[in-house]
Design a protein around this nucleic acid. Structure first.
Length: 683
DNA sequence: CACCCTACTTAGTACCCGCCGA
DNA sequence: TCGGCGGGTACTAAGTAGGGTG
């Protein structure tokens, strides 16, 4: 099919690509390494271009606000992409007309009791039906959705759980400055403990971290302290550090009883603060605790690492709830910053964080209606893209020929977003965060062009740090036209014109989901047993994770756990050969005796062999799976990119228990999909 | 349109806890 | 009974993108 272009082949089947990236990754055993080496790479990159243009470029880096073009040695021009996607209203495919809304007096017929959540009859208008599951979970997906942009009609909650107040250190725990003991006032002491707790983390050796920490720490000091403490190197936090280590040891060594007490208390807190009432239903809150103060740990080479994340007080907190709900009370003697009643948003609590000045929120759990609807909708948008993706792809190919540079650039950006599942790459303020990029913020230094490489024509080599400073490295043979036009690219704004609700990230969702579906089709063989099928599923999942570049640091215990597994496998093999020998001798016995008893014995022994073979197989599959998964994170794609209905359908089709694919939390999040998808679901 | 703020999704990791084998 | 390990979760950073403003 011409419309189906080489797209997916190049993503998944291009074994070379996958292998390449793996090979590459192997060189980078841990993150730190990765970053350093990456820097080196970049250095090399720069020096490679000896010309002054490039020196100038690297000095200026991406400071330019305007789109400036830069020539590289090959005479290619790369434009900075920018995201200029303009939002478009997303229409829900089944907009809800709420006829009942007015009539409902939530505060009357809802009491935040445990039994509440199972009352659904009176809520789901006209949907009472016979859906009397034993557990009677609320099926919000069978109800209609609001059309007016309101996110809820009633919202009641107890507010956040504040961070535990600071407890000053016992006086026996000393701090030394320049070899002399010094008692710090609680304010400065608290901040010092943050540092002390991180002492054996390598963060504390980084210049930026130390500099930022020290600067912010000094702000918390009394003037006396400030005048004394002028050099971080002269600070000795060791006793503090030891103290906290001892504390955590003590916590581990606590009696069962004490541990239980803590557990009970946590449970109480969860019951009290972990739920809210939203539109007649008790819903779980995702993060009901205010983030405690501490030292900021950015990811990658973050310019603000080590800065003090200050303590959030009630006076910093905005509460959002229904006017007619029981409002959460601030702690005694304090006030909230603001109490508002905005049902156009989904959050319950917000505050401004002190590092970037961004707003943090308390919101609902993924299992909640409000998150679930949105998630469902996301996949519906991606399915809409499926319907017109051929047209779009043809269009951007056409656009490569456009006379207008902007259009060509836009088309190239879109091509990479589509083909490589790159993120859009929004503009970031320099110096505010780690230097990471996405498709539209790629700079010349992130790309190499080869007319010919490794026997392939027109190869583009990407090497950059993306979200979370995760390295993206990939060599991609591109279509000739792209090469021709590659040097020009700019951001597009027109996605919305192409399709209702289309944004750059929809491509990631679409390509991830369609890839899973295809891979499942391809990899699942009917006569495989269950573990093998699950391996196939994981492999399909893995293909997506690779596409989306979802990496993880290899678990610290990886080598060891592989060894353990291998030991188990070896042991199992031994058992198996023993068992086989047993069968043989039993058979020999049977030949001689020819009685029922020996016949039975043969049968049992055979059974044992079968059982062992199965167990062995299971272990081997597990080993393969784990090995292949060494530095690939499946969770992110599973949770955020793969239409759960594809997985549900696959399970139904092959008789796989859903529990094998989704754990409890995931089943709660995807309850809608589990309920609605049949075995023939097509993404 | 550039800029800025806000809202919400996506992301990796630290850590916890229950379980399992020694 | 204990230590380790492995899955699950909590945490919170870091993205995308909508929407308002001047």
């Amino acid at each position: 099919m011409s419309g189906d272009h080489s797209h997916n082949d190049s993503q998944i089947d291009s074994g070379s690509r996958v292998n390449d990236s793996h090979k590459h990754k192997d060189k980078y055993k841990d993150k730190e390494h990765k970053h350093k080496d990456h820097k080196k790479d970049r250095e090399r990159e720069k020096s490679k271009y000896g010309n002054s243009d490039h020196k100038e470029f690297s000095e200026k880096k991406h400071r330019e606000k305007e789109r400036i073009k830069h020539e590289d040695v090959k005479g290619c021009v790369l434009f900075f992409f920018r995201t200029e996607f303009k939002p478009k209203k997303i229409k829900l495919e089944n907009d809800r007309v709420d006829k009942k809304g007015k009539k409902r007096k939530q505060d009357e017929d809802i009491k935040p009791k445990k039994t509440q959540k199972n009352k659904k009859g009176e809520v789901a208008d006209g949907k009472k039906k016979a859906k009397k599951e034993p557990e009677e979970k609320w099926k919000w997906w069978e109800e209609e959705r609001a059309t007016d942009g309101s996110k809820w009609r009633f919202l009641e909650h107890k507010g956040p759980v504040m961070a535990a107040p600071y407890e000053p250190l016992p006086s026996k725990v000393r701090f030394f400055y320049d070899g002399k003991q010094m008692k710090l006032a609680p304010q400065a002491e608290e901040v010092a403990t943050f540092f002390a707790k991180m002492l054996d983390h390598e963060y504390t050796t980084k210049d930026a971290f130390r500099k930022n920490f020290f600067k912010d720490w000094r702000k918390e000091m009394t003037s006396e302290e400030k005048s004394k403490i002028t050099d971080l190197k002269k600070c000795n936090f060791n006793e503090m550090g030891e103290y906290f280590k001892a504390q955590s040891e003590a916590r581990k060594a606590m009696t069962k009883d004490d541990k239980l007490k803590i557990k009970v208390e946590n449970e109480r807190l969860l019951q009290e603060y972990g739920f809210c009432i939203m539109d007649n239903h008790k819903e779980r809150i995702a993060n009901f605790r205010i983030e405690p103060p501490g030292l900021f740990r950015g990811r990658g080479d973050h310019p603000k690492m080590g800065m003090l994340k200050r303590r959030i007080r009630p006076e910093d907190i905005i509460i959002n709830c229904s006017k007619d709900s029981k409002h959460p009370k601030p702690p005694p003697g304090t006030k909230w910053k603001e109490l508002r009643h905005d049902n156009k948003v989904t959050w319950l609590v917000s505050w401004t964080e002190s590092i970037q000045g961004s707003i943090k929120y308390i919101m609902l759990n993924p299992s909640s209606r409000i998150k679930g609807e949105k998630d469902w909708q996301k996949y519906e948008t991606a399915r809409n893209l499926k319907k017109c993706v051929d047209r779009l792809r043809n269009q951007y190919r056409e656009d490569w020929k456009s006379k207008e540079m902007r259009i060509r650039q836009r088309a190239v950006a879109l091509y990479f977003i589509d083909k490589l599942a790159l993120r859009a790459g929004n503009e970031k303020e320099e110096g505010e965060s780690a230097d990471t990029v996405g498709c539209c913020s790629l700079r010349v230094e992130h790309i190499n062009l080869y007319p010919e490489k490794d026997g392939q024509e027109f190869v583009v080599e990407f090497d950059f740090l993306g979200k979370d400073s995760i390295r993206y490295y990939n060599k991609v043979p591109v279509e000739k036209r792209v090469r021709t036009f590659f040097y020009t690219s700019i951001l597009n704004k027109h996605l919305q014109e192409l399709m209702d609700g289309l944004t750059a990230k929809v491509f990631r969702t679409y390509n991830a989901s369609i890839t899973l579906q295809q891979q499942l089709k391809e990899l699942t063989s009917p006569d495989e047993n269950l573990p093998a099928k699950i391996l196939s599923y994981n492999r399909a999942n893995r293909a997506v994770a690779i596409l989306c570049n979802h990496q993880r640091a290899p678990p610290k215990t990886f080598e060891k756990s592989m060894q353990n597994l291998q030991t188990k496998i070896d042991a199992k093999k031994d058992q198996l050969s023993d068992a086989k020998r047993d069968v043989k001798s039993a058979k020999a016995d049977l030949k001689v005796r020819r009685d029922e008893k020996s016949k039975k014995a043969v049968e049992t022994k055979k059974k044992a062999v079968e059982r062992l073979e199965e167990q062995l197989m299971k272990l081997e599959v597990q080993a393969t799976d784990r090995e292949e998964n060494k530095q690939i994170a499946l969770g992110t794609s599973k949770l955020n990119y793969l239409d759960p209905r594809i997985s549900v359908a696959w399970c139904k089709k092959w008789g796989i228990p859903i529990e094998k694919i989704y754990n409890k939390t995931q089943r709660e999040k995807f309850a809608w999909a589990i309920d609605m998808a049949e075995d023939d679901y097509e993404f």
